[in-house]
């Protein structure tokens, strides 16, 4: 989880610390660029393909982690 949170912060270029309970759409960087960056990170680091609707349906950082570790 720690490693995932670091990768997420790096992908989003987010300065405020992200924890498992962080509400994603409250982050300033959770925008169209953020969605692209997260999709690219999912592919690179987890080999998972995320679609726009997958990303739109996420609430907290832990939901994204669950989605990525559950696999494609």
């Amino acid at each position: 989880m720690e490693e995932f949170l670091e990768k997420l912060a790096e992908a989003l270029d987010e300065e405020t610390p992200i924890c498992a309970d962080t509400v994603l759409f409250e982050l300033e960087t959770w925008d169209s660029l953020g969605a692209l960056a997260v999709a690219a990170m999912a592919k690179e680091a987890f080999g998972v393909t995320l679609h726009a609707e997958d990303i739109a349906g996420l609430e907290r950082a832990r939901d994204l982690f669950d989605r990525l570790t559950r696999g494609a």
Partner: peptide, 25 residues
């Protein structure tokens, strides 16, 4: 649209994330 962009059906439309996935895969 929910993403903040406006367009009509006469306009060019690209699903950015689908295109990214396509290119990378």
């Amino acid at each position: 649209f929910d993403d903040g962009n406006s367009r009509s059906l006469n306009h060019y439309h690209m699903e950015g994330i689908d295109v990214l996935n396509f290119v990378m895969e």
